[in-house]
Design a protein around this nucleic acid. Structure first.
Lengths: 231, 231
DNA sequence: CGCTCAATTGAGCAACTTCAAAATTAGTGG
DNA sequence: CCACTAATTTTGAAGTTGCTCAATTGAGCG
């Protein structure tokens, strides 16, 4: 399933869109397509990355192990996202682990090629800058939510986000299934608390749970919960 | 107390160090020095910033109001830090408020001048990128701490950070005084919980409290608490 | 001295965590 | 396709932590 970056629409979703034809050729010649199986690491916290991973397909969780042994999911990365960008830019070992949540197709792009473009193409660098600025803003929001919202609010917010990100299947359920443990890891709580919050929302008819799948039945109310206007 | 950027050592602490002589002259000609009094806003959440603020002296808190009306302090900014950078880069209104915690001297640099340098000086852009990458990593850590550490651990960590950042006075106390409410705002808790955690640390002889000032008496033990190896 | 704001303490309550056990689901090999 | 094992989900219950409201103390200031 090898293909050329020049023809890859995915790059429109990230900073690579600022590259010109020649740069794309260069990168396409050096990139390596990889298939990652569900559950496998793309990379692990502390690893020194020699490049970044551009997600063509599949979903990955970016997580960080805390001292107490539980890991906190910082971000869910989907098609078009570039992983490892931050640590490659600052030339440090990565502060996060990336694990595939389903089978993935990714392109590995060596950092030498990126560095080349950073040095010669100001538009690319600016695009990277914009990307980082956005990530930073998102991180600020997460910090506030973690500090000031309760589990019920954070889960409601996550559900709205997930439906938005993964769309819905033919039955109206969120088009991607997460284990309760992963949901708990995103929300930053114990999985039991997560399960209880979900089944409470279920009982209140705000969501429907069918196996592991979740459907949102009342987004308005869920949003109100997030905003602290309802409980 | 007007002075020229060319002679200002502060810029070594941030991305402005990548500017060349001509750029520094240009910026020096357009910058505006301001004195901000304790308690005053540098800018307020939602405001459209026309430039950034380079801190020459004093301390500022960057905070974000959450829906429940409490504000969460995202960062404490000191000498050398540039505020408003993120929102100027992404040309959005700012997502944070900046309030002076003591009297401050800052230089306002118009965004047109920054944009000029971003467009013409790749080194400057790269410096900005590095800065953002660092900020992002810090934010990731904060998220994990918020999600997985308790108030006692977060406060211990903050104290170690504060002593490191503000040094100590002649009596060994941290060289900057924060209200308990601000500490609570940083740590993301109610001020009562913050007070109780502090006075517990005090009773245990890990810290000494004298009025509002705090001295660390056993950093090893405090670090152990942060790391979850002691309680 | 009286006023105001910050700090402290107390007490009750709600939210979360943790450990343990039961129920359900998924996966594997025959 | 079934049976069996492993893993995940769910529920229960006890114990902590942290939140909130209210009252008290203390410090700074005109």
């Amino acid at each position: 399933m090898e293909s050329r970056c020049e023809n890859c629409i995915i790059r429109q979703l990230n900073a690579l869109k600022a590259l010109d034809k020649n740069e794309l050729k260069r990168i396409s010649d050096t990139k390596i397509s990889k298939n990652i199986k569900k559950g496998d690491f793309l990379f692990e916290e502390g690893e020194k990355l020699n490049g970044v991973f551009c997600v063509r397909n599949g979903v990955s969780k970016l997580s960080k192990m805390s001292d107490n042994g539980k890991d906190q999911i910082i971000k869910i990365a989907t098609k078009g996202e570039v992983l490892g960008q931050r640590s490659v830019i600052s030339e440090e070992s990565t502060n996060l682990s990336a694990i595939a949540l389903n089978d993935m197709e990714v392109c590995f792009i060596p950092k030498t090629e990126l560095a080349e473009s950073v040095n010669t193409n100001p538009n690319f660098t600016k695009e990277l800058l914009l990307q980082m600025a956005t990530d930073l803003k998102i991180a600020d929001n997460i910090i506030v939510n973690m500090a000031q919202k309760n589990v019920r609010q954070r889960i409601s917010e996550l559900l709205l986000y997930l439906e938005d990100t993964f769309n819905i299947d033919d039955e109206g359920f969120i088009g991607m299934v997460f284990t309760r443990e992963d949901i708990a890891g995103i929300v930053g709580t114990a999985k039991e608390a997560c399960i209880r919050a979900l089944s409470k929302l279920n009982k209140e008819s705000l969501i429907t749970i069918k196996g592991k799948r979740i459907k949102l039945d009342n987004k308005t109310k869920l949003q109100a919960i997030v905003d602290g206007l309802a409980n």
